[in-house]
């Protein structure tokens, strides 16, 4: 109990004093995970819409696959991306290993299935409501998918946020492909892991509390925005 209280005080101090290194680490965390979320949405949402609206062989198998991949172990993704980006790997010549770009790639791979699977669910619900109207107006399935993506944009924030939450909270993948290099690829979760290794548990927990606060702030902002938008557009 004493240690948890110490952590709370420490977290408060870190935030209050505006620790520059901490700020840089938080910014990098946000930059990496926002980028990964953005790219994952660009890939996952259209994919989810096609899975919801499309009729093609293997569709059911793909749905099950993506649902299953929502539980991808970050370490496995990290290893996979590491082997791809390593100098000895197929993408080695790009020299991306141990850069923020590598972390973005790993997190993107990790959360595309989450975004796609949740987007499919959302779009499928919309499709049930819109289907006859869109067909009556003569919209093709592809066109319908695009329309539903745009029309479901407020509900789809949930799938984006789920992906973001998973991305910013994971440590296994970014540790492997980022290398936790001080000032280059050190993000909140890898810092927490490092401080835990050093046995500085109160500092590690304090950083954890700050991470939770950051994630909560992002979710709150998204929630308020969505409330406003839904009130405006119905």
């Amino acid at each position: 109990m004493g240690e948890i209280a110490t952590s709370l005080v420490l977290a408060g101090e870190l935030v209050a004093t505006g620790d520059e290194r901490l700020a840089a680490i938080v910014m990098l965390s946000l930059q990496v995970s926002f980028s990964a979320t953005l790219i994952a949405c660009l890939i996952g949402m259209p994919l989810g819409a096609l899975l919801a609206v499309g009729r093609f062989p293997g569709r059911r198998a793909l749905i099950v696959l993506f649902n299953g991949l929502m539980g991808l172990p970050p370490v496995v993704v990290g290893l996979l991306v590491y082997l791809l980006l390593s100098r000895a790997g197929p993408l080695g010549p790009f020299g991306l290993l141990f850069t923020p770009a590598a972390m973005i790639i790993a997190q993107t791979v990790l959360i595309v299935p989450i975004v796609a699977a949740l987007a499919r669910q959302t779009i499928e619900d919309e499709w049930r409501e819109y289907r006859e109207q869109l067909r009556s107006l003569g919209a093709s399935r592809l066109r319908s998918a695009m329309t539903l993506l745009w029309d479901g944009r407020f509900s789809l924030t949930t799938s984006g946020l789920a992906g973001f939450g998973r991305a910013i909270a994971e440590v296994g993948a970014v540790m492997i492909v980022g290398g936790n290099i001080d000032g280059v690829t050190r993000v909140m979760t890898t810092t927490i892991a490092l401080e835990t290794s050093k046995g500085d548990l109160p500092l590690a927990l304090a950083l954890g509390l700050i991470l939770i606060a950051v994630v909560l702030a992002v979710n709150t902002a998204a929630f308020v925005l969505r409330q406003w938008a839904e009130k405006r557009w119905g």
């Binding site: 819109y130 109207q133 107006l137 919209a139 029309d151 944009r153």
Partner: peptide, 27 residues
């Protein structure tokens, strides 16, 4: 050429005008 109006209108989350335009856009 055919059209259909349903018991419960399905409106897209955009303006009334854009909803009317949507059908024309598809054509």
């Amino acid at each position: 050429t055919q059209g259909m109006v349903f018991q419960r209108p399905v409106m897209l989350r955009t303006t009334a005008l854009a909803n009317v335009e949507y059908g024309l856009k598809l054509r």
